[in-house]
Design a protein around this nucleic acid. Sequence first.
DNA 1: AGGGTGTCCTGGAGGC
DNA 2: TGCCTCCAGGACACCC
Length: 276
Amino acid sequence: MPELPEVETVKNALAPHLEGQFIKSISFYTERLRQFLDVDLFNKAFSGKQITRLKRRSKYLIFEFDHQKWILSHLGMTGSWRLCPAREERKKHEHISILLEDGKDLRYCDPRRFGEFRIISAPTNRDNDPQALAHLGPEPFDEAYSQAYLWNLSRNKTKPVKNFIMDPKTVCGIGNIYASETLFRCGVSPLRKAQKLKKKDCLNLVVESQKVLKSAIAAGGTTIIDFQAPDGSEGWFHQELNVYGRTGEKCHVCDKLIKRVVQAGRSSFYCPGCQK
DNA sequence: AGGGTGTCCTGGAGGC
DNA sequence: TGCCTCCAGGACACCC
């Protein structure tokens, strides 16, 4: 479950190996991820081309090149990239292979195929967002993500606050688990309409969402549910979960039972005692 | 036009 | 044990 911190970690791990590298060829072992994968189109655009930079924006990885086409990669739910020797046998669910000139192979594995891999147009100024990502809201550690920003944006929003903060147009990187946990820490019910947020709630939302993301980054970009330490111990965050997945259990603070509701097709967990 | 729903996909869990 | 159903998740097309 790659959240923003994990994508950042992947980017940092891969960038030194990829930047400056030339691509020999690209192969696909599935017809499609979220979109149809056109092997000819990819090879025409990128074979023999140099990766100039690997960047992260939101939960996207961006492969930059010195021409008008870039590659956008999203790990979806279960996607991962790894570098291995080119002759290494392909593993189950490895759908993409990017052969590099130094003999290494960049492989994309994704059992549920929720990921994305597509060609996008480069922006005129390469420090700007490409058009394909122009709709995204600020990064969670951007100055633009502030109390005033959330306050203003939420004024005319009738949708539930849970959906509001999970919307990447509001802010990037708050997935389903982080949303529930952040709202618990803020004492805000996921069912409350966004326009009913108080100014203080907006400040709390900024501060608390940044806290959970920061903790995850400090833990090396591990996800909060399915992470297992190499020694087999449970993930760092497991004991810190206050509401997520705890339906029917007692709230750590007030002893009321944790409830589960479905919003926008996603489970939300909250404490009816602590969250109003 | 904003908000809600369905869809994509596979593996794991739980019920019978 | 095995089969079935349900559920998880992010993004986006679609409908009202």
